[in-house]
Design a protein around this nucleic acid. Sequence first.
RNA 1: UCCUCAGUAGCUCAAUGGCAGAGCAUCCGGCUGUUAACCGGAGGGUUGCUGGUUCGAGUCCAGCCUGAGGAGCCA
Length: 430
Amino acid sequence: MHVYIEDIGKHEGQEVTIKGWLHNRRSSGKIHFLIVRDGTGFIQGVMSKAAVGEELFKQADHLSQETSIIVTGTVRADKRAPSGYEIDVEGFEIVGQSHDYPITPKEHGVDFLLDRRHLWIRTERQQAILRVRHEVINAIRDFFNSSGFILADTPIFTPAACEGTTTLFPTQYFEETTAYLTQSGQLYNEANAMALGRVYCFGPTFRAEKSKTRRHLTEFWMVEPEMAYASLDDVMELAEDLVVEVVARVVDKRRPELKVLERDTSTLERVKKPFPRISYDDAVKTLQSKGLPIEWGGDFGGPDETTLSEQYDRPVMVHRYPAAVKAFYMKPDPDRPELALGVDVLAPEGYGEIIGGGERLADLDLLLKRIKEHDLPQEAFEWYLDLRRYGTVPHGGFGMGIERVVSWICKLDHLREAIPYPRMLYRLYP
RNA sequence: UCCUCAGUAGCUCAAUGGCAGAGCAUCCGGCUGUUAACCGGAGGGUUGCUGGUUCGAGUCCAGCCUGAGGAGCCA
């Protein structure tokens, strides 16, 4: 009977078949230890010469790393096994050979591993990360789907800059036209919210910034909710609820994976409502009192974000930034027009910004003025301006970067491990 | 784009300007409880590239290539 390794505990004492790959092999003369993985887990198969006979035992002498094999044997509980179970191997069949597998059970450099990312993901650690990513994505979808949001995906080919500030990837669109890969679904999201009330989009996003840091990818995944009739406070509350739900779900369902990653879950278990909310003004004062060289009006750098988040045991929400450093579509604070009603959520443990968003500018005249100030081509935004012409309402939303969330939850030291095939400034392969 | 660092065996790394080395991987041999198993043996090199200094360069100098970390920008 074919079983998956993750279900092996249900089959103690039974003869089962595992279909997988040989992860590693150790041998001791008359006994082989075969570590087999099948995508759902790892298990040690114990093969003794006495049990399988001379011929099969000798064949197993030459089994190499990542050979695909089908193993049959009897499941046995064993305290020595990390998972609690082993298989006493009675037979095996080679499906595909594997010679000179490059990723050996020793240390490798990042460049070497990234060139072989298609094989690197076979390791226990990378599998654990990708399972956590899966759980994060599922938790996000469940959160929105069960709270009245409609999934309305926004286009990936776009005619012009969404924000104009960051660099876009141009791409040929048939003979004459240049299209750009989206850097945010937000503007379309606003239109969708005016149609459907509460919406979200969830897809890949592209930024042609020549960033070379552990916090950047050129292609990453982002979920962006948008709500009609919503204020900055509503947006902050939604962000808080989402993060709490996602973290709780991973801690609940992916504890074995977090253990593989040696993640201390106590810091994740502290991620509960309410998150501290601090104004940009107060954040700057705090940073200055800590001796950081920041002036009011400047955006936060990496060290600033780290210092701020270190003040708290859970994510912190920083709101009301200077309008000058934020996007043209942000609504100004009615009490202090030099501030924008925006919010960033900073993850703990130095992981920085995982969410950015706020209340949008709903007033037609002011929006026209901002487009001029930012030197954006008005004709490209006519459809967006229509949203203010035909029944404008206060509204807002945010974007959450999936890889940054996964990176934080797994406590990775680089975003590149949080996505199956990272795209970076100097990496487009495999 | 700027700053810093790195490039030596398939991999991870050593080598005062003076014989090119180790561990792992591979191959051969040994071992009935290994957990990155262990023990013995063997094969494996255009020291990123080009030029220069020197009796002699992996090592020093110049330029280039490739990569990493950081800055800016952002999720």
